[in-house]
Design a protein around this nucleic acid. Structure first.
Lengths: 198, 198, 198, 198
DNA sequence: TCCTAAACGAGACGGTACGTCTTGTCTTTAG
DNA sequence: CTAAAGACAAGACGTACCGTCTCGTTTAGGA
């Protein structure tokens, strides 16, 4: 049986150029921030024609999203033995992503474009949040099995609340304590309650 | 007593021009969004020279902040009789501000500039959040008096968590229920214990 | 004697592609003019790869020259019986070439490239002007035999002067009379003497 | 009586910037030729924003025309005593303009744009040719007074023929003799006739 | 019937220049 | 001394072509 080798004609797109532009994007994102970063500068830094960028991405958001995507690590939340050990792992993981210069810029872009172009938030939801949301649900499930939290607790809602406070703490950094401790304190509002009742 | 008539010499600044530029800023903010809005366009719409804008504000954020400030309403949180009645009032108040087109744009700007220019978040903290945070503390205090919540509850932390989930719900709007109901659900995670335990 | 069958190996150049590109060149030359015509557009119109054009021609001038050459007619100047009858035939012939849209564009290109790339004028001299110059010399020779002009008259110089006035009339079209009549009038300056004196 | 001081408001256009751009245009015109000269390069050389050029001229031709115009000298054709002495002055004057690098480029542009944009030839006619045509008419008139040429001779037609041959000799430079001698020879075709008859 | 080799269409590549837009500053006249 | 108007230098925008460079696919001999 013959394979349908439906390769498109013409010269294939250069993987080298693609890598170079993602790399340059990340560098400049860290150096000068999302808003101040021009396509022209990215092209120059990558040693690539502007056309080569515009051929792949029609908006700056798309390019940056792809660049960030390219360095995204796998979501790994192994069972640490207890609810709070698991939560600490989640918080630490988020901290390592959000507190780097590039992480802050990524958050800036996500929020900035999400607000002005509502449909665009979907990308970040699908690529970033949703996988984490699913992984977090397993953390809560394990806690339910251990009897650490109420069986009726909605894992998604907890994740959203956690994300919200993390986001807030990025914009208005807590004074007097670390970002992680602050988030942990807020998380205590939710889980202390469940702990104390019975 | 004579007033300190330390009038500076020359033509006084035109209040009419000032009003016109704030008005034009708000209009364009609603029409095309914060990022797409140029100083040039604001000046043209207001029938005002660019210089007249630059004389008063050196950054777009300042102008927009002032424009938003000009329509801000007073924070009023009267005692509604119970914790949840008060919380509903808080949520509804936030909804009326955040869910309008201009409100969304304001949030976009706040977040966008806060993330890229960390020190700039202070303005929004001082002018918008802090007054609400203080008012919210009174709500919690009343709940404590009524015995509805734990005496040790940190009102600021609750406010921050509430703000976080509101922010998150603006960026990733909930599906299947209203913004208000969603926020109320998340708030339930915190106050459920107080409701259910006794 | 062995034939020089020095056929190069590999696929021979496609006559069909060659025809298509010359045809497309002439069409676009008439439609949008020499300067505004891009190689890219020619290739697209001809349904031919850009490479196929660049393999044959390294400059736009060469392609256009070849395209024009491909429709060039033979120079035929039969004896019309008298000097002015012959001259009228020459003028009419030039008019039919120069006054069409494609003719004007050809002249534009010839002049434009000749001025900026002096050595390039040679092509047009060799392919277009020189044959006509030679044919014109025969017209003058016949007139000398008939005694219509001075024996010492330099046919080349007359041809050049005639070409000059034709060129001038193309650039600055005469008002109030036809191009042909205007050229005829100018030619009268030269041949008037011969007409009137005897 | 009050003067109509209808000065337009706003900052007036900078004469310094204008001078700089004309100067840069002429320099580059001589250095790299009309076709190869980009607006971008002119702006850079002049130390002027591109906008400042586009504010004044919408086409490259207009800018170049103005630049050339700015160095144009007055047409002076004093009575040299005889027809041929006057003609020699005319030829020499034309040579000094047309045979410089900048002159050749100017001719290239005039012809190039005249052919592709017919209405545009008018500028060169009005600014350059017409004044010379009028001045030349006086030369012929003086010759008529002296009895050197036929009273019926049309000065405009002679001027056009002269311009034509000059143009032709610029594009296809004569070999074996100077441009001036060549033009003089062609002019002989016209004036020898008138001389010889009686 | 394969093999070699060039030409083919398609289209991506690094660039240059385009003409427009915006930025923040400067310079004028009018009030 | 401010207002409006608008010119200024600078530089990014997204587009169009440039001439070059892969690709995979014909299309011919010569073996």
């Amino acid at each position: 049986m013959k394979e349908a080798s439906s390769k498109s004609p013409g010269r294939p797109r250069s993987a080298k150029a693609h890598q170079a532009m993602l790399r340059a994007t990340l560098e400049l994102l860290g150096e000068m921030g999302y808003g101040a970063m021009s396509i022209e500068a990215i092209a120059a830094r990558a040693g690539v024609g502007k056309t080569t960028i515009y051929r792949r991405y029609s908006r700056k958001e798309e390019l940056v999203a792809d660049a960030i995507e390219s360095i995204r690590e796998e979501v790994l939340l192994p069972d640490a033995g207890s609810l709070w050990a698991d939560l600490d792992a989640v918080i630490e993981n988020a901290a390592q992503i959000s507190l780097t210069p590039i992480g802050r810029q990524a958050v800036a872009m996500i929020i900035s474009s999400a607000a002005s172009n509502p449909g665009f938030a979907q990308i970040y939801w699908d690529k970033y949040l949703e996988p984490r949301r699913t992984a977090f649900a397993r953390v809560i499930d394990r806690a339910k099995v251990r009897g650490e939290v109420d069986q009726a607790l909605d894992p998604g809602l907890v994740f959203d609340t956690l994300s919200g406070i993390m986001l807030y703490a990025l914009i208005f950094p807590p004074v007097g304590q670390s970002w992680q401790d602050y988030v942990r304190g807020a998380l205590g509002l939710i889980f202390k309650a469940s702990d104390e009742c019975p």
